[in-house]
Amino acid sequence: MALNLHVDGARWRDAQADTLRQRPGLVPVIKGNGYGFGRDLLCAEAERLGVPMVAVGTYAELPGALGTFARDVLVLEPYRAAIHHDLPQLRDTRVVHTVTAPDDLTDLRSVQGDARVVVEGLTSMGRFGMPLSSLPGFVTTARGEGVTLHLPLGSGHVAEISRFVEAVPDNRTWFLSHVTTAELADLQRRFPDREFRPRVGTDLWLGDKAAYEVRAHVLEARPIAKGERVGYRQRPQPAGHLVVVSGGTSHGVAMESPAAAATVRQRAIAVAEGALEAAHRVRSPFTVGGVMPRFAEPPHMQCSLLLLPEGVAPPAVGDTVPVRMRLTTAYPDAVVLS
């Protein structure tokens, strides 16, 4: 039994090449679950692309990247003396650290005198960084390789980035997240003597949604009568077919982050989904026989029980069915790259 990510390699790589062409100086982001593909595979893809640098999310991800990618590795997590002081990778000259505070920079340089750094500015994202008022002096002290800015999602970033660029006129290289190709072009026109290097993950690896698909194996399919109880919770079911498929909570099936619900429509959908969940009528992300059947009960660790309505032809054991999943929270058993 397996839940696999199937990838059309040629189409997937064409999308990578397009993104790279549209965003010169791109730094691939390879973090977390590797966007469903796994970090090692993405490091190998970055090698194939020939980029000079990749970015990882945390120091915990650093050893794997250093072992599978031959060039520079930028750590997006800020260096913190209280947490990272004793890490053996601090002395690797391929590592580029993110710093946001003078004390942390002093500690890092006490461990590795020529440690390579970028300074992070505190943007409207508000997560971490050096405030704009203190940034110019800190950039001079750090003698780093640039300034990095983590922006909110959406557009409209040019004005905010411009304020940073104008405040630190001596800094040439800017690492930027969540900027569009149009914004990059606008920034380059405004500041032709600066280098803007976009950090890109989702658009690079998941840009062409038709290039990949998650599929699950059918493990069992049998008719059930109305009122028959199944599963751990022994809930009675309507008549139809019980279909057991590979893929459960350990794969990320039905695991979701809190909804933003920013619009009236999104809030209404969230309320409706909550009502369905309370009534044990949650639609699954699996497509079987052209429909998305509901869960017979919450997913198990490695498989899920689905209720296929009467009148829908059941699949055969061994068939595969597509699964709609958010790949940033997916952990497939294997990646099948054609």
Rank of each mutant, 00 (worst) to 15 (best):
F191S: 03
P102W: 01
T106V: 09
L108M: 08
T180P: 12
T181K: 12
L122G: 07
T140S: 13
T148G: 04
H150R: 01
R172C: 11
V95Y: 08
V179S: 08
T181I: 12
T180C: 14
P152N: 11
V96I: 15
T100W: 05
A142K: 05
L108K: 02
A167H: 03
F164I: 13
V111D: 02
G156C: 14
F138N: 12
A142R: 00
D107R: 01
R94I: 13
T180S: 15
I161F: 07
V158N: 00
F175S: 00
G121Y: 06
S134G: 09
V139I: 05
G126H: 09
N171K: 08
R94V: 13
G121E: 11
V111F: 03
V158R: 01
P102Q: 03
T141K: 09
R94C: 14
T106N: 08
A185L: 10
V158D: 02
V165N: 06
V117C: 07
E166Y: 02
G154P: 12
S134D: 15
T123A: 08
G126F: 02
V119D: 04
G113W: 00
R109L: 13
D114Q: 13
R172M: 07
E166S: 11
P136A: 11
T148K: 10
A101G: 03
R189C: 06
A142W: 02
V117E: 07
V139C: 15
E145H: 13
T180H: 13
A115F: 02
L132C: 06
V179E: 09
E120D: 04
V168W: 11
D114A: 13
S133G: 02
V165L: 07
D107T: 02
E145Q: 15
P131S: 06
Q112K: 10
R116F: 06
T180A: 11
R189Q: 14
V117R: 02
T180F: 14
